[in-house]
Amino acid sequence: MFILKRTDVEITTVQHPNKDQQIPVLNYQGQTFRLMKMFSAQQAEEARALWRDLTDNKGKACVLLEESDRYSVWGKVRLDQLLGEAHGGCDTRLQILTQACLLVLQAVYFDIEDLLGARQANSFEKDLIKIFQKSKFPQAESPEAVKTLLTLNLLDSLHISPWQETHLSTLLQELYKLGKGYFGNTSFAEGIEEILESLSAEERDLFVSWLSQSGLGKLWVMN
Protein backbone atom coordinates (compact mmCIF):
# COMPACT_ATOMS: atom_id res chain seq x y z
CA MET A 1 0.00 0.00 0.00
CA PHE A 2 2.59 2.57 1.13
CA ILE A 3 6.29 2.76 1.98
CA LEU A 4 6.66 5.52 4.56
CA LYS A 5 9.35 7.33 6.55
CA ARG A 6 9.11 8.13 10.25
CA THR A 7 8.45 11.81 9.48
CA ASP A 8 5.37 10.81 7.44
CA VAL A 9 3.50 9.23 10.33
CA GLU A 10 2.45 9.62 13.94
CA ILE A 11 2.90 6.65 16.27
CA THR A 12 0.84 6.45 19.43
CA THR A 13 -0.28 3.63 21.74
CA VAL A 14 -3.49 2.20 23.22
CA GLN A 15 -3.76 0.09 26.34
CA HIS A 16 -3.93 -3.68 25.82
CA PRO A 17 -7.26 -4.95 27.23
CA ASN A 18 -5.84 -7.90 29.15
CA LYS A 19 -2.17 -7.15 29.77
CA ASP A 20 -0.13 -4.38 31.32
CA GLN A 21 1.29 -3.19 28.03
CA GLN A 22 0.65 -0.73 25.24
CA ILE A 23 -0.33 -1.56 21.64
CA PRO A 24 1.58 0.57 19.05
CA VAL A 25 -0.68 2.40 16.59
CA LEU A 26 0.52 4.15 13.43
CA ASN A 27 -1.53 7.04 12.08
CA TYR A 28 -1.21 8.20 8.46
CA GLN A 29 -3.57 10.58 6.66
CA GLY A 30 -6.50 9.71 8.89
CA GLN A 31 -5.91 5.96 8.62
CA THR A 32 -4.92 3.72 11.51
CA PHE A 33 -2.46 0.80 11.36
CA ARG A 34 -1.47 -1.81 13.96
CA LEU A 35 2.04 -3.25 14.22
CA MET A 36 2.31 -6.67 12.59
CA LYS A 37 6.05 -7.37 12.57
CA MET A 38 9.30 -5.59 13.40
CA PHE A 39 12.61 -6.08 11.57
CA SER A 40 16.18 -4.95 12.25
CA ALA A 41 18.09 -2.66 9.90
CA GLN A 42 19.83 -5.73 8.45
CA GLN A 43 16.49 -7.34 7.56
CA ALA A 44 15.38 -4.79 4.98
CA GLU A 45 14.75 -7.36 2.26
CA GLU A 46 12.74 -9.59 4.59
CA ALA A 47 10.58 -6.63 5.60
CA ARG A 48 9.96 -5.61 1.99
CA ALA A 49 9.21 -9.21 1.00
CA LEU A 50 6.56 -9.58 3.71
CA TRP A 51 5.03 -6.20 2.83
CA ARG A 52 4.87 -7.07 -0.89
CA ASP A 53 3.40 -10.50 -0.20
CA LEU A 54 0.67 -9.08 2.03
CA THR A 55 -0.23 -6.23 -0.30
CA ASP A 56 0.27 -7.75 -3.76
CA ASN A 57 -0.57 -11.41 -3.19
CA LYS A 58 -3.01 -11.32 -0.28
CA GLY A 59 -4.72 -7.99 -0.85
CA LYS A 60 -4.00 -6.65 2.62
CA ALA A 61 -3.90 -2.93 3.39
CA CYS A 62 -0.41 -2.53 4.88
CA VAL A 63 2.35 0.03 5.18
CA LEU A 64 6.09 -0.53 5.36
CA LEU A 65 7.78 1.93 7.71
CA GLU A 66 11.44 2.55 6.96
CA GLU A 67 13.57 3.95 9.80
CA SER A 68 17.34 4.32 10.12
CA ASP A 69 17.68 1.46 12.61
CA ARG A 70 14.71 -0.78 11.78
CA TYR A 71 11.84 -1.66 9.48
CA SER A 72 8.27 -2.53 10.41
CA VAL A 73 5.10 -3.74 8.70
CA TRP A 74 1.73 -2.39 9.86
CA GLY A 75 -1.78 -3.60 9.00
CA LYS A 76 -4.79 -1.31 8.68
CA VAL A 77 -7.40 -1.41 11.45
CA ARG A 78 -10.21 0.80 12.72
CA LEU A 79 -9.24 2.92 15.71
CA ASP A 80 -12.60 2.33 17.38
CA GLN A 81 -12.01 -1.41 16.97
CA LEU A 82 -8.70 -1.11 18.84
CA LEU A 83 -10.19 1.11 21.52
CA GLY A 84 -13.13 -1.24 21.82
CA GLU A 85 -10.74 -4.01 22.78
CA ALA A 86 -10.42 -2.30 26.14
CA HIS A 87 -13.94 -3.49 26.87
CA GLY A 88 -15.35 -7.02 26.84
CA GLY A 89 -12.29 -9.24 26.51
CA CYS A 90 -14.47 -12.25 25.65
CA ASP A 91 -15.92 -10.51 22.59
CA THR A 92 -12.44 -9.46 21.51
CA ARG A 93 -11.18 -13.01 21.92
CA LEU A 94 -14.01 -14.43 19.83
CA GLN A 95 -13.47 -11.80 17.15
CA ILE A 96 -9.79 -12.74 16.87
CA LEU A 97 -10.62 -16.46 16.72
CA THR A 98 -13.29 -15.80 14.09
CA GLN A 99 -10.87 -13.78 12.00
CA ALA A 100 -8.24 -16.53 12.20
CA CYS A 101 -10.74 -19.24 11.24
CA LEU A 102 -11.93 -17.18 8.28
CA LEU A 103 -8.32 -16.72 7.15
CA VAL A 104 -7.94 -20.51 7.13
CA LEU A 105 -11.25 -20.88 5.27
CA GLN A 106 -10.22 -18.38 2.61
CA ALA A 107 -6.83 -20.05 2.16
CA VAL A 108 -8.45 -23.42 1.48
CA TYR A 109 -10.97 -21.85 -0.89
CA PHE A 110 -8.30 -19.99 -2.89
CA ASP A 111 -6.18 -23.15 -3.11
CA ILE A 112 -9.17 -25.05 -4.51
CA GLU A 113 -9.84 -22.26 -6.99
CA ASP A 114 -6.18 -22.01 -8.07
CA LEU A 115 -5.39 -25.73 -8.20
CA LEU A 116 -8.70 -27.37 -9.07
CA GLY A 117 -10.51 -24.66 -11.04
CA ALA A 118 -13.64 -22.51 -10.89
CA ARG A 119 -16.08 -25.42 -11.12
CA GLN A 120 -14.68 -27.08 -8.02
CA ALA A 121 -14.58 -23.72 -6.23
CA ASN A 122 -18.28 -23.23 -6.97
CA SER A 123 -19.00 -26.72 -5.67
CA PHE A 124 -17.04 -25.89 -2.51
CA GLU A 125 -19.17 -22.79 -1.98
CA LYS A 126 -22.36 -24.87 -2.20
CA ASP A 127 -20.98 -27.36 0.31
CA LEU A 128 -20.20 -24.50 2.69
CA ILE A 129 -23.73 -23.13 2.40
CA LYS A 130 -25.10 -26.51 3.47
CA ILE A 131 -22.75 -26.59 6.49
CA PHE A 132 -23.64 -23.05 7.55
CA GLN A 133 -27.36 -23.67 7.17
CA LYS A 134 -27.29 -26.99 9.02
CA SER A 135 -25.34 -25.56 11.96
CA LYS A 136 -27.21 -22.21 11.88
CA PHE A 137 -24.17 -19.97 11.53
CA PRO A 138 -25.23 -16.33 12.15
CA GLN A 139 -25.37 -14.18 8.99
CA ALA A 140 -23.86 -16.94 6.85
CA GLU A 141 -26.75 -18.98 5.48
CA SER A 142 -27.22 -17.38 2.05
CA PRO A 143 -25.07 -17.73 -1.09
CA GLU A 144 -24.35 -13.99 -0.99
CA ALA A 145 -23.18 -14.15 2.64
CA VAL A 146 -20.89 -17.10 1.91
CA LYS A 147 -19.40 -15.33 -1.12
CA THR A 148 -18.70 -12.31 1.10
CA LEU A 149 -16.95 -14.45 3.72
CA LEU A 150 -14.77 -16.06 1.05
CA THR A 151 -13.68 -12.78 -0.54
CA LEU A 152 -13.75 -10.34 2.38
CA ASN A 153 -10.48 -8.50 3.06
CA LEU A 154 -10.28 -9.53 6.70
CA LEU A 155 -7.53 -7.10 7.66
CA ASP A 156 -9.33 -4.12 6.11
CA SER A 157 -12.84 -5.21 7.06
CA LEU A 158 -15.03 -2.62 8.75
CA HIS A 159 -16.49 -5.29 10.98
CA ILE A 160 -16.18 -9.00 11.50
CA SER A 161 -19.07 -10.37 13.53
CA PRO A 162 -17.69 -12.95 15.97
CA TRP A 163 -19.09 -16.48 16.07
CA GLN A 164 -19.32 -18.66 19.15
CA GLU A 165 -16.62 -21.26 19.77
CA THR A 166 -19.02 -24.08 18.87
CA HIS A 167 -19.47 -22.55 15.42
CA LEU A 168 -15.72 -22.08 14.99
CA SER A 169 -14.97 -25.67 15.99
CA THR A 170 -17.65 -26.93 13.60
CA LEU A 171 -16.24 -24.79 10.79
CA LEU A 172 -12.69 -26.13 11.14
CA GLN A 173 -13.86 -29.73 11.54
CA GLU A 174 -16.09 -29.57 8.46
CA LEU A 175 -13.52 -27.58 6.49
CA TYR A 176 -10.96 -30.30 7.18
CA LYS A 177 -13.36 -32.94 5.85
CA LEU A 178 -14.14 -30.87 2.76
CA GLY A 179 -10.49 -30.14 2.04
CA LYS A 180 -9.57 -33.80 2.35
CA GLY A 181 -12.35 -34.69 -0.07
CA TYR A 182 -11.40 -32.07 -2.66
CA PHE A 183 -7.62 -32.50 -2.53
CA GLY A 184 -7.51 -36.22 -1.77
CA ASN A 185 -5.01 -35.67 1.06
CA THR A 186 -4.47 -33.54 4.15
CA SER A 187 -1.40 -31.54 3.14
CA PHE A 188 -3.57 -28.39 2.91
CA ALA A 189 -3.93 -28.50 6.73
CA GLU A 190 -0.21 -28.65 7.49
CA GLY A 191 1.94 -25.68 8.44
CA ILE A 192 -0.79 -23.07 8.60
CA GLU A 193 1.43 -20.35 10.16
CA GLU A 194 1.81 -18.62 6.79
CA ILE A 195 -1.96 -18.22 6.58
CA LEU A 196 -1.91 -16.35 9.89
CA GLU A 197 0.91 -13.92 9.03
CA SER A 198 -1.50 -10.99 8.77
CA LEU A 199 -2.38 -11.40 12.47
CA SER A 200 -0.27 -9.93 15.25
CA ALA A 201 1.94 -12.26 17.26
CA GLU A 202 -0.47 -12.06 20.21
CA GLU A 203 -3.43 -12.91 18.00
CA ARG A 204 -1.59 -15.87 16.47
CA ASP A 205 -0.65 -17.14 19.93
CA LEU A 206 -4.28 -16.89 21.04
CA PHE A 207 -5.51 -18.85 18.02
CA VAL A 208 -2.81 -21.52 18.27
CA SER A 209 -3.51 -21.98 21.98
CA TRP A 210 -7.25 -22.29 21.32
CA LEU A 211 -6.58 -24.71 18.45
CA SER A 212 -4.54 -26.93 20.74
CA GLN A 213 -6.97 -26.83 23.66
CA SER A 214 -9.96 -27.59 21.43
CA GLY A 215 -8.29 -30.72 20.02
CA LEU A 216 -8.30 -29.23 16.51
CA GLY A 217 -4.51 -29.00 16.59
CA LYS A 218 -4.48 -32.70 15.64
CA LEU A 219 -6.11 -31.74 12.33
CA TRP A 220 -4.57 -28.34 11.57
CA VAL A 221 -0.88 -28.93 12.12
CA MET A 222 1.53 -26.15 13.03
CA ASN A 223 5.18 -26.43 11.99
Rank of each mutant, 00 (worst) to 15 (best):
L155V: 09
L155A: 02
L155R: 13
D156F: 13
D156S: 09
D156L: 12
D156K: 05
D156W: 14
S157I: 11
S157R: 05
L158I: 08
L158K: 06
L158D: 02
L158W: 09
H159W: 15
H159R: 15
H159D: 05
H159V: 04
H159L: 08
I160M: 06
I160T: 00
I160F: 13
S161T: 08
S161M: 03
S161Q: 02
S161W: 11
S161F: 14
P162I: 04
P162L: 06
W163D: 03
W163P: 14
W163T: 00
W163Y: 14
Q164G: 12
Q164W: 14
Q164H: 15
Q164C: 03
Q164R: 05
Q164I: 09
Q164V: 07
Q164D: 10
E165T: 10
E165D: 04
E165R: 11
E165I: 11
E165C: 05
T166N: 12
T166M: 02
T166H: 07
T166G: 13
T166I: 15
H167Y: 15
H167W: 15
L168M: 05
L168A: 13
L168P: 03
L168Y: 10
S169Y: 12
S169E: 13
S169H: 14
S169F: 15
S169T: 09
S169A: 02
S169W: 03
T170H: 09
T170W: 14
T170P: 01
L171A: 11
L171C: 06
L171W: 07
L171V: 10
L171N: 11
L171M: 04
L172M: 14
L172N: 00
L172C: 11
L172E: 02
L172T: 10
Q173A: 14
Q173H: 06
Q173E: 05
E174H: 12
E174Q: 07
E174D: 04
E174M: 12
L175Y: 07
L175E: 05
L175F: 11
Y176W: 11
Y176G: 01
Y176K: 01
Y176S: 04
Y176T: 00
K177E: 02
K177L: 07
K177T: 10
L178I: 01
L178M: 02
L178P: 05
L178Y: 03
L178D: 01
G179Y: 12
G179I: 05
K180H: 13
G181K: 12
G181D: 07
G181M: 05
G181L: 06
Y182A: 10
Y182S: 04
F183G: 02
F183Y: 07
F183E: 00
F183C: 05
F183A: 04
F183W: 05
G184R: 06
G184Q: 06
G184M: 00
G184K: 07
G184V: 03
G184Y: 07
N185H: 11
N185T: 03
N185E: 04
N185F: 08
N185K: 01
T186S: 02
T186Q: 07
T186P: 00
T186V: 12
S187T: 12
S187R: 06
S187V: 03
S187M: 11
F188D: 00
F188H: 09
F188G: 01
F188V: 08
F188Q: 01
F188N: 02
F188E: 15
A189V: 08
A189D: 00
A189Y: 11
